[in-house]
Amino acid sequence: MKNKNASRRKFLKLGLAAGASALIGGGSVLSAISKVNKPAGGDKVKMLSPEGKLMEVDRGHALCCGVPTSKEVRKGIPGRHFVMVIDLSKCRNARKCVSACSKMHFLQPGQEYIKVFLMQDSEDTSPYWFPKPCFHCDAPACVNVCPVGATFKREDGVVLIDNERCIGCKFCMAACPYSSRVFNWKKPGLKPEANYSPESSVPQKIGTVGKCDFCPDSFVSGILPDCVTACPNGVYYFGDKNEDVVTNGVEALRFSELVKNKSAYRYMEELGTRPSVYYLPPVDRSFPYERGFEELPEEMKKAYKVKRAHLKKFKI
């Protein structure tokens, strides 16, 4: 079956290539991502626990090491399914996740991979803060529509973008119902000294699409994404669904029990996108939602108010 598929693809590519070969001209544009061999390791792998302590675990439990090849990047880490649980009852719009994420991804000013929305489900219900990373859907609309396979879904549940393949058609941005994607409208200002990998999304590339990537470059070595560790209130829980554990860096909880006991839900489940991000409803809040305005600059406060008035107009 595999061979059959491969030959079918080959055939199709051949046909397409023949059709447009005139357009292309010479030169293969296939820029392969630098291939580095995995370092040889023993049966045990050293890992860092969230408390900052080294521990040794079986290789079976550890994730892969070294710089993965492009094939490995597209495949992901076998046997994993990374999920995030966001506890809305703890969020007070501190925006530390936003700044930490922007810093580690060297985002251009004004770009945000995580956005914090002020939501109000209906007129009489209370407003709440709604941090929104990429949902890394199991049925991702963005991946379906990509004409070149630049954005892809891995076996471990992560949706990534290969910015060296992306042609910048922005179809994925139109297709994503959650506005998770941003476009690099101009040359990225910050140029970190790093070799590009879809796992790190750094450095950004002009004319291509970027988004929250769940930080696979850190979690291969067992480190939590920066938004999780940056949050002062422990709003974000991250983990592997197959291991049945999520952690916010302070406490580790059974995923199945957490989503069951706190009736977690996925945002806009009705769209059929099957997100990997779960929300715990904003009940028994740690903070009144007004706290979210405290540290904001004046203009942002105003903007949130304008937005709320706008929502009221639509009765949403």
Partner: peptide, 11 residues
């Protein structure tokens, strides 16, 4: 510049 990708990686 990446227009050839439509042919090379077309889905």
């Amino acid at each position: 510049d990446r227009l050839p990708h439509l042919v090379l990686f077309g889905r």
